[in-house]
Amino acid sequence: MMAGNLFVVDLTYIADLSKIDALLEPHRTFLKSGYDRGVFLASGPKEPRTGGVILARADNRAELKKLIDQDPFKQEGVAEYRITEFNPVMKAENALL
């Protein structure tokens, strides 16, 4: 297993989708930086489109929160974030966890 703790970041939109859409490109640039740093493992919108989910790996919650604070959605106050740490006791044989 790779080093670091696993987290689910649950975003809930608190603004009109037009405001979300206006920030989508900067948000995706932010996500790319998280992938480039090896912190983000997967991400995508919820269905129905009420927010999104990020699967992340970080040394601790404080490190992850510091990164999340750079998200344009957070900086512009259009989404709320819930960060949940979890310990996978089972995984698929080929999982990159």
Rank of each mutant, 00 (worst) to 15 (best):
79 A>E: 00
71 D>N: 01
14 I>G: 01
66 K>I: 05
26 P>E: 03
70 Q>W: 04
60 N>D: 13
96 L>W: 05
33 S>K: 12
80 E>A: 06
20 I>N: 03
45 P>I: 04
48 P>V: 08
15 A>S: 05
65 K>F: 15
92 A>V: 07
92 A>P: 08
64 L>R: 08
42 A>C: 09
62 A>D: 09
33 S>V: 03
55 L>V: 11
40 F>G: 04
51 G>T: 05
68 I>Q: 01
97 L>E: 11
97 L>S: 14
77 G>R: 01
32 K>E: 14
96 L>N: 14
35 Y>H: 12
89 V>K: 15
54 I>N: 04
35 Y>Q: 04
20 I>V: 04
53 V>C: 14
51 G>D: 06
16 D>N: 05
30 F>Y: 14
71 D>L: 06
61 R>V: 10
61 R>F: 11
67 L>A: 09
11 L>G: 00
53 V>M: 13
46 K>H: 08
41 L>T: 06
38 G>F: 05
58 A>F: 06
53 V>R: 15
22 A>M: 01
46 K>G: 07
11 L>P: 00
61 R>H: 15
75 Q>G: 07
21 D>T: 08
62 A>P: 02
69 D>G: 04
54 I>W: 10
76 E>F: 09
34 G>P: 06
69 D>W: 08
81 Y>R: 12
25 E>H: 12
58 A>L: 03
3 A>C: 05
93 E>R: 12
97 L>P: 02
11 L>Y: 06
45 P>Q: 14
25 E>C: 11
95 A>C: 05
85 E>T: 09
87 N>Q: 15
44 G>A: 01
50 T>G: 12
24 L>C: 10
94 N>A: 10
96 L>T: 12
92 A>L: 14
75 Q>T: 10
13 Y>C: 02
